[in-house]
């Protein structure tokens, strides 16, 4: 976290650089079934972020040694395409991507009913094609929609959002400029039907009050994002009522 306190990111009316209020999300668009060869897929545009998630399986677990007798293994990969960032991202092994893949997998394992598919594997691929800030949340959200699209049984869909602090003000869903000057970042994975959490990270500096505010922003924003996820699925599979 940078913490360049002298750059003004919020005006006198409390509006942010892109005109949002402190609790507002960036525009979000989700499309289901964008990868014809996959069992399930979704693309998501979230601000300038653009990510695609695909799901393959349940399928035979290869290599055999990773397979589990009592449940399926969830094989999650988060990756940023080389052209997704301002400076080119070198393809290949990357500690950051590995960590995000792992926490994403941990979050999804909390809802996917893996016990229904012993000895098999479910592959989840998250590819960030354009990164703006908050890609781990964007990727996790897209993966949930792709899993639902693939018909994978789950007890809920994970919705992921982040809030943070700029110029001492707590705001929801930091964009790239804000992220550069951010003083804290609190990404969460929320189960919209229960309010339970399956993913939580934080870095920076927040007072107890600020922390509570950021937490509340995330919980509220998760409901709004969930509505967009449901609408995207209904759009693909024919309406609600």
């Amino acid at each position: 976290m940078g913490g360049y306190g002298d750059v003004q990111m919020i005006d006198e009316d409390g509006k942010r650089v892109d005109g949002r209020g402190p609790g507002d999300l960036r525009p979000i668009e989700i499309e289901v079934g964008v990868v014809p060869v996959a069992d399930g897929s979704a693309s998501i545009r979230w601000g300038a972020n653009y990510a695609i998630a695909t799901v393959y399986g349940p399928m035979e677990a290869h290599p055999r040694k990773i397979s589990r007798q009592e449940r399926a293994v969830l094989d999650v990969r988060y990756n940023m395409a080389p052209f997704s960032t301002t400076d080119r991202m070198r393809p290949g092994f990357n500690r950051r991507s590995r960590e995000i893949s792992k926490v994403t997998s941990d979050a999804l394992e909390s809802v996917v009913q893996l016990e229904l598919y012993p000895r098999s594997k479910i592959r989840v691929e998250i590819e960030v094609l354009c990164a703006e800030a908050g890609t781990r949340c964007v990727g996790l959200t897209a993966a949930s929609v792709a899993l639902a699209d693939a018909g994978i049984p789950m007890t809920d869909m994970v919705v992921s959002v982040a809030s943070g602090k700029i110029n001492g003000v707590v705001v929801c869903d930091l964009n790239k400029e804000e992220d550069n000057y951010g003083e804290a970042d609190l990404p969460m994975g929320v189960l919209p039907n229960t309010g339970d959490l399956v993913f939580l990270q934080m870095d920076g500096d927040l007072s107890p009050e600020e922390f509570q505010q950021a937490w509340d922003y995330n919980v509220n924003a998760a409901q709004a994002v969930h509505e967009i996820m449901v609408a995207a699925l209904a759009d693909r599979y024919g309406g609600g009522e």
Binding site: A148, D156, M157, L191, V230, L233, A234
Partner: peptide, 10 residues
């Protein structure tokens, strides 16, 4: 009935 339901829906 063609009401679409999503995982987790009550």
């Amino acid at each position: 009935d063609i009401k679409l339901v999503v995982p987790g829906e009550a």
